[in-house]
């Protein structure tokens, strides 16, 4: 917990994971090998999954990657601007958000397994969607906390 007192710890964690995801998303956008892994037959009778599959095929993941970079840059900038360490209340909130993100991730694995087994044709789409939903929620929540605390 002591390491979480320093705002730079949160900033580094957010930056490392966001840069990793952004790099992957930007590289795979429009990449022919990635496109080949996606479903092209639209076998699932679901407008949502078919639209998501088209979204991936059109190479739009790079925009999500860029949004991650912008949000992570904002977290890093606000964290570095802060001169004081987080107090025990702020650490407890941060710890709860990290634990929640970790717990959600634990439940995402069996959910991903279930979704992939129910329709293997959409396995890449499913995994990409879960990754985007999970990290987007965590990144936005973390940015909200950092903005809220930047003056305290």
């Amino acid at each position: 917990m002591r390491i979480m007192r320093k705002p730079v710890t949160n900033a580094v964690f957010i930056a490392v994971i966001s840069v990793f995801y952004a790099t992957v998303f930007i590289i795979i956008s429009g990449h022919i090998e990635f496109e080949r892994m996606l479903n092209h037959k639209q076998t699932l009778n679901s407008a949502f999954w078919n639209e998501w599959s088209v979204f991936l095929k059109e190479g739009n993941m790079k925009y999500i990657g860029l949004i991650y970079l912008i949000l992570a840059a904002a977290v890093v900038f606000l964290s570095l601007m802060r001169r004081k360490n987080y107090d025990e209340y702020q650490i407890s909130i941060l710890a709860k958000s990290f634990i929640t993100a970790g717990t959600v991730m634990v439940f995402l694995f069996p959910l991903a397994l279930l979704l992939v087994l129910s329709d293997p044709n959409y396995s890449i789409e499913t995994i990409m969607f879960l990754v985007v939903a999970h990290w987007s929620a965590f990144l936005i929540a973390d940015l909200f906390l950092v903005i809220r605390w930047c003056k305290s």
Partner: peptide, 26 residues
């Protein structure tokens, strides 16, 4: 008060509203 004891205003608010139990040192 938060400045006197070296914590954030949100920490004082959370203690007063019973949302947060302070450490023994606080």
């Amino acid at each position: 008060l938060s400045e006197k004891v070296g914590v954030s205003r949100q920490a004082i608010n959370a203690i007063e509203t019973g949302k947060f139990a302070p450490s023994i040192w606080l």
